[in-house]
Design a protein around this nucleic acid. Structure first.
Lengths: 225, 225
DNA sequence: GTCTATACGAAGATAGAC
DNA sequence: GTCTATCTTCGTATAGAC
């Protein structure tokens, strides 16, 4: 492999720093799992694309599923951190409104993921697809990673919507999760410069605002007591 | 196979009529594809469960994907028929409201599918999962089956919501599709008699009403002009 | 026309030697 | 870390029995 760059330099260059095999595997896994799903993606496809040996996944992670688990954990970590940070900040100021809570939930999922360089949409699509994977075991992987903040959001939402029954709040939360995953999973279905209007998102920057407005209206007036 | 019933009798018995191999394959495919996804389900698993030979799928349908296509078409047909019927009926009376249109879209997807005997939830889950399959080719199978009514709904919704921009209407329609698929795909995740409140659906019969109320509020006040 | 038994080549994940 | 071997399972094709 003569074209393989030499690792070890400081990462202060303008160029992309040299990635370790482990990192390359995680990056490619995010891309391919988000494209074809877990079952639909072979380890061979991943290792070839990552310019790694077929056995590299087993060496670094132990199994295909462990690779997925690691990728999910890495992708969700900054989202969860940001959600917690916003929740802390809101609650320090008193009782947050439903809109503030919805924004604090949606924006880290869309915003953060849609706006950090080229990999953003790939990460978004990956997360969205894992959340809706046909296999329950894989959906549970996602649920386990987003669980930690779930309880806090549910109780805060209930406080913000005192007239709504607890089941209704849970129903709304589930719908919020679902719509977020839907729009995350569509991150790359929209080719850059695609014709606007077909899916209502000519401007991806407004996606978060539109989704938040949609959800706020539904929470405020669409939940049964 | 001595326990195989003899076919050929009129289907006027109270008992379940004897199913043909083709029907059994479709039924099992609905169940397994809805459970593990297309890629996650092998033809062998399907044919074993259907008490058919491994070659039966190829004989009756031609390929695994053709089996899926046939299953999708069979599952969606009554839903589309009912949607068209309702749309005709509404438009005969004048310009339908957004709520009427949303109801005419959601109820055939949830209602019809959740309330026809034991197979209902299986069909619902299958449809919901196909709509969100990780593979684009499979999602397109679903889209092709639901396309025929899509244009009618979009234009009728635009008339009912004259202040909303066309992209906003399309955005709302996409969200409606997504939430319907979400709740369809959860049809069997909820075990019968499961603890209420966790997902806000202690009473499945109210699911349609709750979802419609949620969407009506979002369409009426959550779409940008 | 239906269904069965069997075989094939490709691709799957993983383990052990290096 | 890599390479190779291994053993499984996949979807599909075919030839022939009912």
């Amino acid at each position: 492999m003569p074209e393989r760059a030499v690792a070890g330099g400081k990462e202060n260059s303008v160029e992309t720093p040299v990635e370790s095999t482990r990192e390359r595997l995680l990056n490619i896994a995010e891309q391919r799992f988000g494209e074809g799903g877990y079952e639909g993606t072979s380890l061979r496809a991943i290792t070839v694309a990552a310019a790694a040996n077929i056995a590299a996944v087993n060496y670094h992670f132990g199994s295909k599923e462990a690779l997925l688990r690691a990728a999910v954990a890495r992708a969700m970590a900054p989202v969860n951190t940001e959600r917690r940070r916003r929740l802390d900040q809101l609650e320090a100021k008193g009782e947050p409104s439903a809109e503030q809570l919805i924004r604090a939930f949606i924006e880290p999922g869309l915003d953060l993921v849609l706006r950090r360089g080229e990999r953003g949409p790939v990460v978004a699509r990956f997360i969205g697809r894992v959340a809706f994977d046909p296999s329950q075991r894989i959906r549970e992987l996602y649920a386990a990673e987003s669980d930690p903040v779930e309880a806090r959001y549910l109780t805060a939402l209930q406080v913000a919507l005192p007239t709504a029954a607890p089941e209704s709040v849970a129903f709304g939360y589930l719908n919020m999760l679902g719509l977020l995953a839907l729009h995350q999973s569509q991150a790359l279905t929209r080719p850059p410069g695609a014709e606007p209007g077909l899916d209502g998102q000519e401007d991806p920057g407004r996606l978060a605002d539109n989704l938040i407005a949609f959800l706020v209206a539904a929470f405020d007036r669409g939940l049964r007591p």
